[in-house]
Design a protein around this nucleic acid. Structure first.
Length: 262
DNA sequence: TCCCAGGCCACAC
DNA sequence: GTGTGGCATGGG
């Protein structure tokens, strides 16, 4: 299976590398991606997206090529900071990941960093193929996940009990009670795995950004509500634009180095 | 050497 | 209910 398609207002690099997804690697030309139980290659030249190893319909769905960034921006409130973030990162799309794979990835995220999450996730994938029945403690402990191996163990036990198919169909509620699946992790899976675009994950970067750009000094639980009210049903996109932009401007997001209001 | 990292949990009070 | 330390490991 090999093919191509034309895209508009889409950036493959931003989309894969912005931190919503980790199971990619740069190949000779473009990226190799492992997602939703498939392995495929994809590359972009201009507006032309070339892929192999997977069918076109999958590419369109996985990369959310049905989304229109300008229309989404228009559904978010007027906001100079959002304008800046959108100008820089508005060509990324929120992926439609598999909820289970997405949960596994973000259970590896607490007190870690993106390069390490990526390494850890690849190890887990290579060792288990993301099959919960193969995620045994003895195996997980040897993968250098730190304390996070318990989180995968807890999730795997839960999913094994009811079967992966049934677990997926239960939706976000199925994450309740899994060790390590707190508010931030659940919001990430809602946003990236269940296509709930109202989800607004609050992490260290977003916390700093909201505090230093908008002057809101609240606890994470209130920040989440504040963002929900301000940004509404498409807040997830706002979150990801601000997240990517904040990271790229990291030296400006330190106390005393706040950029001038645009 | 010390500090922090896409948090979360158990345990004070 | 709210605040705090500890958690495994790696990198700056």
């Amino acid at each position: 299976m090999r093919g191509w398609l034309l895209t508009r207002h889409f950036d493959l690099r931003q989309t894969l590398e912005c931190g919503q997804f980790f199971d990619w690697s740069r190949g000779s030309s473009g990226y190799q991606v492992r997602a939703c139980g498939r392995v495929f290659e994809v590359s972009q030249e201009g507006d032309r997206l070339t892929f192999s190893g997977v069918e076109k319909a999958f590419i369109q769905r996985f990369f959310s090529l049905d989304h229109q960034p300008a229309a989404i921006r228009a559904r978010l409130p007027p906001d100079p900071w959002l304008d800046k973030a959108f100008a820089a990162y508005g060509r990324l799309r929120l992926l439609r990941q598999d909820p289970w794979e997405c949960l596994v990835a973000f259970l590896l995220s607490p007190v870690s960093n993106i390069p390490r999450i990526q390494r850890n996730l690849r190890s887990v994938h290579d060792a288990t193929g993301f099959e919960p029945s193969r995620m045994r403690p003895a195996l997980l402990k040897g993968l250098g996940l730190g304390f996070r191996w318990r989180f995968l163990d807890s999730a795997a036990r839960r999913v094994n009990k009811q079967g992966l198919g049934r677990w997926r169909k239960r939706g976000p509620a199925a994450m309740q009670g899994i060790l390590g699946a707190g508010p931030k992790v659940q919001d990430c899976v809602r946003l990236f795995g269940y296509a709930d675009y109202s989800a607004f994950p609050v992490d260290t970067w977003i916390r700093r950004a909201l505090q230093e750009l908008y002057g809101v000094k609240l606890k994470d639980r209130e920040l989440r509500l504040w963002a929900g009210e301000r940004f509404g049903p498409w807040g997830g996109y706002a979150q990801q634009w601000l997240f990517a932009w904040s990271r790229s401007e990291r030296r400006f997001l330190r106390p005393g180095r706040i950029p001038a209001r645009p």
